[in-house]
Each structure stands twice: as C-alpha cells, then as structure tokens.
Design a protein around this nucleic acid. Structure first.
Length: 234
DNA sequence: TCGGTCAATAAGGAAT
DNA sequence: ATTCCTTATTGACCGA
C-alpha cells in the first residue's frame, strides 16, 4: 500500500496484516454460470429506471460471458424495472483488478477502457469496482486508525495516572522553602536575597558565605548542607 | 434465517 | 455544464 491516491485518503499506518486483497470475492464464484432463473429477487425496488449499465445502444459490447453486459434485457422483466442479477467477478477478473489497483488507485479514462476490454466488462463496471475498492481500503484504514488511537488513549491514560501518582508523591515530600538567617542581623532573609551555589547547590545569602539551614527545615533524610533541592515549583 | 460481502445506485461536492 | 470523486445506501448472493 504505498501508492497515494489523488484523494489523499491514503494513510500510512504500518499495521501488519493489512493486505489490500479483501478479495473474498473469489471464493466459489463461478459466476459465469449465468443462472438466468431470475425474474424474482428485488421486489419493491424503486431504483431509477435508467440502467447505466445498459450498453449505450451501441451494440459493440456483445461478448461478455460473465453476465456483465448482455443480460440486462432479460433481467428487466415485464414486471417493471428492478436491479439486475448481481454480477460476480471471476477469480481472474478480481485478480487483474486487484493487480491494477495495486499499481494505481485511480484510473485514467484510457486505463479504464483498456482494463474493461481486457476483463470483458463495461468501463462503468471497472469504475465502480475501483470506487468500491477505494472505499473498502479507506474503511479498513479507518478501522486500523481507530484501533491505533484506542491503544494510544490507553497508554496515555496509563501515563497520566502514573504522572499523577508521581505528583502526589512529590507533593507529599515537598519541603518548606529554606530559611536563611542573615549573618549580620540573625534575621531571616527574604527569598530574593538568596542564591544557590552552583557547585554544591547550597542555598546562600546573595552576599555572604553559604549558610546552613536551621535543622527545623531540613527534610527527613537530607543532609543539612545539601538539602533536598526543591525539585518543582509547586 | 441471519449477518457479512460486494456490485451497483443515488446524491452531492470539487475541479475543470 | 461536465466529469470524477466520495459517501451512504440498496439489494443479491453466500456461508454458517
């Protein structure tokens, strides 16, 4: 999945296990059997009368063995307009479509035409297949992104809890700001008059020698000369 | 019978 | 106005 569609929807999430195949389509689809035992189905299908899959009165599209083109008239019984029998792509058709989807998520009109001829489908069917394929790809990617974001949310929630616990612990061991007495007056100095020695990280009076904090303010287990540094400004 | 898948359709928006 | 796209939805088909 490296290609970027012009729609810009291509997410680049490296989630292992996402293959674009999705093609459960292939399983047991011998679709070609053209079981025309139709007539029923749909029921109250008030789809629009105009079937865009109807060959445009041209008639060049005649050999479409998969019931992809020529069945329309039979499908549209006397009972009025209804959706034609569902086309099932053959394995080979699916494979080729997947292959070209891998190369390009969108087709130019020329590519579409060429692919349609190659697959014996109408260009419209090829176009629809690509539209749906893009939608499926996007849906898968959205689901993966959702899972990824859920995991992110989970780990962030856990991280938040952990940090909150840490905050509580820090609050609990928080100490009062050191009281430093003036060497001259023996009165407590204002905090603005204090500085910290960058070498020993001891609180000092801005003008005087390092001053030991009074024992009362020493945190438990801390040296009076190297008191626990106020780690955060709570 | 029911749910999932997927081709096909419809509606509406963006680009030209 | 036309073309092409996305999105939502429908209905046929299929397997459990």
């Amino acid at each position: 999945m490296g290609a970027t569609s012009p729609s810009g929807l291509e997410l680049t999430m490296a989630v292992p296990g996402l293959s674009s195949s999705s093609g459960s389509e292939g399983a047991g689809c011998n679709s070609t059997s053209n079981n025309n035992n139709n007539g029923g189905g749909g029921g109250g299908c008030n789809m629009r009368d105009l079937d865009i899959n109807q060959p445009a009165s041209g008639g060049e599209e005649e050999e479409f063995p998969m019931g992809s083109v020529e069945e329309d008239e039979e499908e549209r019984g006397v009972g009025g307009p209804h959706r034609p029998k569902k086309l099932r792509l053959s394995k080979e058709q699916s494979r080729l479509l997947e292959e070209s989807f891998r190369l390009n998520h969108t087709l130019t009109p020329k590519q579409k035409e060429a692919l349609a001829i190659k697959l014996k489908l109408r260009p419209r069917q090829v176009e629809v297949w690509f539209q749906n394929r893009r939608a499926r790809t996007k849906l898968k990617q959205t689901e993966m992104e959702c899972e990824y974001l859920k995991r992110c949310f989970g780990s962030l929630t856990e991280e938040t809890r952990r940090l909150q616990r840490e905050v509580e612990e820090l609050r609990a061991m928080r100490v009062a700001p050191p009281t430093v007495l003036s060497p001259h007056t023996r009165q407590p100095l204002p905090a603005s008059a204090l500085t910290m020695c960058p070498r020993c990280e001891r609180i000092t009076a801005a003008t005087g020698p390092p001053v030991a904090r009074p024992p009362s303010s020493a945190a438990a287990g801390s040296s009076p000369f190297h008191p626990r540094r106020p780690s955060a400004a709570f």
